[in-house]
Design a protein around this nucleic acid. Structure first.
Length: 413
DNA sequence: TCTGGGGTCCTAGGACCC
DNA sequence: TCTGGGGTCCTAGGACCC
């Protein structure tokens, strides 16, 4: 096997750093990174959770994902700023552009993380990492952690060690010393549930997991068990994929500022989301075979229904009709706070046209395409359905990041 | 009291076929 | 009728990631 050198570059407190850098550029003299601050959603819209926190905020015990309300209880003088996703996309892209000078082989793993294959790099890897880190700080105004390892998993684990603005290595001969003493939940792919399971059988460190019998772990935790056992032993061999992988599903969801209690309102929300997922699907020149609707009640109970269509579609109308039927099948008249529609089993349009499918909705799709065209040219609200007028519900719902396609991210490497 | 949005992959049970 | 199994498809739900 040839030795690989993989870098994992991770923006420190990404959204918060980007807000801080933006504000400084705009002439502010307060650096959000130096005071207790968070990026958080609007509580009045019921979006009030912590998306990112500064290091001073972390010292108050504030954690990503908790409510803004409880963060403010922990630290009343906390500064809360709203997220601006377009800014983050720009910052993310600028970082990828900067890094592409160092290697052609870059995988954009999420908005704030990239893998970079430096196996064929010109510089010694430490020197290269140093240059990347300093260059990003100087040119783009934010700091990153860089993890270096023989595969993606170890590089990713390394970038998580101590923060911010640090470079760490994690090669095979360093696993026992640097990774095995860590608590199991620090291992990639071990979440809350798996931590509890492992702890209940006396496994508390990554090293303890690594030393278990592989077959025992498999019979206990099945495939995910095998995966985390391999990760605990530093075993992982996926490629740094620079070409975009195929999209597997497209979904949009919304939490409304108020509970929905009538079918009429619910169907408007479903139509609004159908418009968005349909638009995104057509933009990718794909059609979907499976449509799924999930609901969350005001009590936070979630449930979903899905349907496989006989003929894959990209028509907003078909998506809406199918989603409405699914909704009516499943709704038990409890007040609803969140709606989502997801399209999966996606196929390329070209493939469909060559196949034996005869789409009944060809006219709908042509109409959708001309509406898409007008919306692209004149703005999303240039064409809206009259039923939305004065309804208090947005005619097109979802789409955190406008314009650019969100980079692909998988929970697996 | 308050709890987002966008993804991927896996499992288990039932239907249906041979 | 006291009765198999294997394979595939479909659906609902859950685990994890950022």
């Amino acid at each position: 096997m040839n030795d690989r050198i993989v870098f994992h570059i991770d923006v420190n407190s990404a959204y918060l750093s980007w807000e801080a850098a933006y504000n400084l550029q705009m002439g502010s003299n307060l650096d959000l990174r130096e005071v207790p601050s968070i990026v958080g959603g609007d509580q009045e819209k019921r979006h009030g959770i912590v998306l990112a926190k500064s290091i001073p905020a972390k010292k108050y015990g504030i954690r990503t994902g908790e409510t803004v309300y409880s963060a403010l209880e922990k630290c009343p003088q906390l500064i809360v700023v709203e997220p601006h996703y377009e800014r983050y996309m720009k910052a993310s892209k600028a970082m990828v552009d900067f890094l592409s000078d160092y290697s052609p082989n870059i995988q954009r793993y999420s908005i704030d993380e990239v893998f970079l294959d430096y196996s064929n790099g010109n510089l010694p890897y430490m020197e290269a990492a140093q240059k990347m880190k300093e260059g990003i700080k100087k040119e783009l105004g934010f700091t990153v952690n860089i993890g270096i390892g023989p595969n993606k998993l170890l590089a990713k684990m390394a970038s998580d060690f101590t923060k911010p603005d640090k470079i760490h290595t994690l090669f095979y001969n360093e696993i026992a010393e640097k990774m095995w003493p860590l608590p199991v939940e620090d291992l990639f792919m071990i979440g809350h549930r798996t931590k509890k399971k492992l702890n209940s059988r006396g496994i508390f460190t990554i090293g303890e997991l690594a030393h278990l019998d592989k077959n025992y772990v498999y019979s206990w935790l099945k495939k995910p068990g095998l995966l985390i056992w391999e990760y605990a032993n530093g075993i992982e061999s996926s490629d740094v994929k620079s070409d975009k992988s195929k999209v597997k599903s497209i979904g949009n969801s919304t939490t409304l500022p108020f509970d929905v209690t009538t079918k009429d309102e619910a169907l408007k929300v479903i139509l609004g989301i159908s418009e968005m997922v349909g638009m995104r699907l057509r933009e990718l020149n794909m059609r979907a075979h499976v449509i799924s609707v999930s609901l969350k009640t005001s009590e936070f109970f979630s449930y979903s229904h899905q349907k496989k269509l006989h003929i894959p579609t990209s028509s907003t109308n078909t998506i809406y009709k199918t989603a409405s039927t699914l909704f009516e099948e499943m709704w038990d008249y409890n007040p609803l706070r969140c709606f989502s529609i997801s399209l999966s089993s996606l196929l390329d349009e070209d493939f469909i046209q060559l196949s034996l499918f005869e789409d009944f909705n060809e006219k709908d799709i042509l109409l959708d395409k001309s509406i898409d065209h007008i919306r692209t040219k004149f703005g999303q609200d240039s064409v809206i359905r009259s039923s939305f007028l004065y309804s208090g519900i947005d005619p097109i719902i979802g789409g955190v990041v406008a314009e650019e396609n969100y980079p692909m991210m998988s929970s697996y490497l």
